[in-house]
């Protein structure tokens, strides 16, 4: 059952390559951990941890009831939150289909005087897939019992362990 010593040595070389590469990449990812994040959470924008007047991305849950559309053009404003703070976003343009209250969105633009002026709005959908009938039945049931299951930002894991 014993392995040939030469093969054993080569096995050690193979393991060394894998372990060494993993440690090297792990250290790199650790050093760049902030830069690998696609976006800033709103609480960091409020704290001033994100630079002003520079193109950045922010992401969070669209606060229900915060969307207000202009009657004359495509201008829209809404608030995004990570549960620790929210920031107002202003945008002019067409929103993606999946953009809605209680859903996550990623916005691309600049912080100007505490307001995020977005040039692009992307919808970040969740990992849940539900048939239409089931979704409607759930909405009906909650309407009957009086419990409100309307869109909310409660279950959004926009902060938590990813906050360095």
């Amino acid at each position: 059952m014993a392995m040939h010593p030469v093969r054993k040595q080569r096995l050690m070389i193979v393991l060394f390559i894998v372990v060494f590469a993993s440690v090297a990449v792990g250290l790199m990812a650790f050093a760049l951990r902030q830069n690998i994040n696609l976006f800033y959470p709103p609480s960091k924008l409020i704290n001033g941890e994100a630079p002003e007047g520079v193109n950045i991305r922010a992401g969070g849950c669209v606060v229900p009831g915060s969307i207000s559309r202009s009657k004359t053009d495509l201008a829209v404003s809404f608030a995004i939150t990570d549960g620790k703070g929210d920031v107002t976003v202003k945008y002019t343009g067409i929103l993606p289909d999946l953009f809605s209250e209680g859903e996550a969105a990623v916005v691309n633009g600049q912080m100007q005087g505490g307001i995020f002026m977005a040039e692009q709005v992307l919808a970040k959908h969740d990992e849940n897939y539900t048939p239409v009938e089931v979704a409607e039945a759930m909405a009906d049931a909650s309407a009957k019992t009086g419990t409100s299951h309307q869109a909310s930002c409660d279950g959004m894991d926009m902060s938590g362990n990813k906050n360095y």
């Binding site: 951990r33 690998i36 994040n37 696609l38 976006f39 959470p41 992401g59 990623v106 992307l122 970040k124 959908h125 969740d126 990992e127 849940n128 897939y129 990813k162």
Partner: peptide, 9 residues
């Protein structure tokens, strides 16, 4: 990390 891609279903 914060990604646009959703987590595993």
């Amino acid at each position: 990390w914060f990604t646009l891609h959703q987590p595993a279903s």
